[in-house]
Simulated assay, not measured.
Amino acid sequence: MKARIALPILGAALLAACASQPRPLQGTFNEITPRDAAASDVTGATVRWGGRIVGVEPHTNRTCFEMMSTQLSDYGRPYWASDDVGGRFIACRTGFYDPALFEKNREVTFTGRIDGYENRRIGEYDYRFPRVEADVVYLWPAREYVDVVTRPAPWPWWGWW
């Protein structure tokens, strides 16, 4: 009798273990959004932020990403439940990240520490960007969108025979 109860519980636990965040994105992070960070000084806070790439800036020894932030799913992947974005941020990491691969609108999740702020313009608007010194740059696979076309049965009686 105990085996009947234990086996389904064990199976559910194993499935739940498979449905977790990618290992590089695991950890404990502050629950601060980029919008919150821009409004106050939280330098030194460790964060896991993600969103869509607005621009990529390769420098001599590092690459910086300008990001439009959104919420993250339980897996750490950005998801777009509405048009309400969580602000913008800049994430920088040592090394070269090719702008041809890290192109505009690709989804990326970063983990790291807020190491300061940069003032930049978005159009004519002055915006205060929190800047993350990233430990992890996690580029998500491009989402595949499929159009599903359904056809009605050629005759309502078809298939009754």
Rank of each mutant, 00 (worst) to 15 (best):
P152C: 06
E103P: 02
M68N: 11
S20E: 11
P99H: 06
T109E: 13
P58M: 07
L139M: 13
R93N: 03
Y138L: 07
P141E: 14
P78F: 14
A17L: 12
R23T: 15
I32L: 01
M1P: 04
Y125R: 06
R113V: 13
E31L: 06
D126W: 06
L139T: 13
C18M: 00
R93C: 02
T70F: 06
Y79V: 05
G159M: 04
L14Q: 00
V148C: 03
F29V: 00
A19N: 10
G44N: 01
V47S: 01
P99G: 01
V54H: 10
I114E: 03
E31F: 03
V108K: 00
G87M: 08
A6N: 02
G86V: 13
V56N: 05
A12N: 06
L7Y: 09
T43Q: 06
T70P: 02
R143N: 12
T109A: 12
A19C: 08
G11E: 10
P141A: 09
Y79D: 02
R77V: 15
R77M: 15
L25H: 04
A37H: 06
V108C: 04
R93W: 00
A142C: 10
A142I: 15
Q21N: 06
T70K: 01
T94E: 11
S82A: 12
G95Q: 02
P78E: 13
V137G: 03
T63V: 09
D84N: 13
D74H: 05
V149Q: 11
T46H: 03
P24H: 06
R93E: 10
P58L: 08
G86R: 15
